[in-house]
Design a protein around this nucleic acid. Structure first.
Length: 364
DNA sequence: AAAGACTCCAACCGCGGCGTA
DNA sequence: GTACGCCGCGGTTGGAGTCTT
């Protein structure tokens, strides 16, 4: 019949992840690659449910995540995509591969919503003051969105039908993630070769913070970028944590210098996805082998489901999503073309972004 | 300086789709 | 065909940090 339960509800740790847990998770994924989340807690000895592990990886530890402020361009992208797709954050995030859906969702809820509300209110005030508003401006936002979504839906259906004749299967895309636009022909909008800050940098920061934190304090402090700097470093005993998983040797190695090297020098030859260059000095201090940012060399490996990276010497990444070239001859609406276009058309995007929503509505 | 209000975001929860036994 | 588990998604929450009074 069915499978064993995902995870026992009892004895599962909740709350913020400690740096130690992060290290264990990262090293495990480095070894085995992402996926098969159910096996992660049992194999690593982490007292976390598989869901929590997956979330931690996808939202925080995963390579390629950009942190910090959203750029104006990203902001505009999100606003427009939200207008198009609604609160389908995963779909929106697929157009901003450096950002997680959680990040985008948070940013929307905390910043953009308010921003737009203010703008909307301002517009309302203007509308009230000037009675001779155009007939178009009378269309409420809700109506406009409905119309937009209907149009998109119809366009997608037409595209899907057309593609089903021309392309036997589009399901092989490694990024075909069952998101809410499954029928959209996936010429993935993400950059085929985009340079951006290493998110492995996140892990570097994390590791640096962790190195600076004492194990005791680390359980108190959050492992986010907000983590306060600690003055001393005591290397925690990861081996102790991994004692519950004797079958996994890699984690036990981490207590030795060799183990550390193997931990920080991601260069697995099988299906591991990341390779990093870092060093740990005599005092156990973690030092990236470059001045400011740690260099993580992340190379494209074959079996990686989602992310292939090429590293540059300056520590930035090229993300090369190995997607099938689904160049189609099917006519697209202007806006969908724009959405499906890659980021090399930044200027065109900027122009489109500059348009008012009411203007983009005319494109349909 | 202290207390309360507010902001932000990592993490949790619950649901639905899909795959598997 | 059915039941069950896994995975991914969107909504929500908890609490640390920051701002205001």
């Amino acid at each position: 019949m069915g499978r064993p339960p995902c995870c026992e509800k009892t004895g599962v740790k909740k709350g913020p992840w400690t740096p130690e847990e992060d290290i264990i998770l990262v090293s495990y994924i480095q070894e085995h690659g992402p996926g098969n989340w159910r096996a992660v807690p049992t194999n690593t000895g982490l007292l976390r449910c598989s869901k929590s592990c997956r979330l931690r990886w996808t939202n925080y530890l995963r390579p390629g995540i950009k942190r910090g402020n959203f750029t104006e361009h990203e902001e505009k992208m999100i606003i427009h995509l939200q207008a198009l797709l609604g609160n389908r954050w995963a779909a929106i995030a697929s157009y901003l591969p450096q950002r997680t859906d959680n990040d985008i969702k948070n940013y929307w809820n905390t910043h953009l919503k308010k921003k737009l509300n203010k703008k909307l209110e301002g517009h309302d005030q203007e509308g009230k003051s000037s009675s001779s508003s155009s007939s178009q401006s009378k269309i409420s936002k809700g109506q406009w969105e409905k119309r937009l979504q209907t149009d998109i839906h119809m366009a997608k259906q037409a595209l899907c039908e057309a593609l089903s004749l021309d392309i036997p299967s589009t399901g092989d895309s490694p990024n075909n993630n069952n998101n809410s636009t499954p029928n959209l022909p996936v010429q993935e909008p993400v950059q085929t070769s985009t340079t951006y800050a290493s998110s492995a940098e996140n892990i570097a920061k994390l590791l640096q913070n962790w190195m600076k934190n004492s194990p005791k304090s680390s359980s108190q402090c959050r492992s986010s970028s907000k983590t306060t700097q600690m003055s001393s470093f005591n290397f925690p005993s990861i081996g102790a944590v991994s004692s519950s998983s004797p079958s996994e040797g890699t984690i036990n190695n981490a207590t030795t210098q060799e183990g550390l090297d193997s931990l920080f020098h991601f260069n697995s030859s099988n299906n591991s996805d990341v390779s990093q260059s870092m060093s740990v000095d005599e005092g156990g201090n973690f030092t990236p082998e470059n001045n400011n940012a740690a260099i993580f060399q992340v190379e494209s490996k074959q079996n990686l489901p989602n992310y292939n990276f090429k590293a540059e010497i300056n520590g930035s990444f090229h993300q090369e999503e190995s997607k099938p070239n689904l160049e189609t001859q099917v006519p697209l609406t202007f806006l969908e073309k724009w959405l499906l276009d890659d980021n090399t058309n930044a200027q065109a995007q900027e122009e489109l972004m500059g348009m008012a929503l009411s203007e983009t509505a005319d494109l349909f």
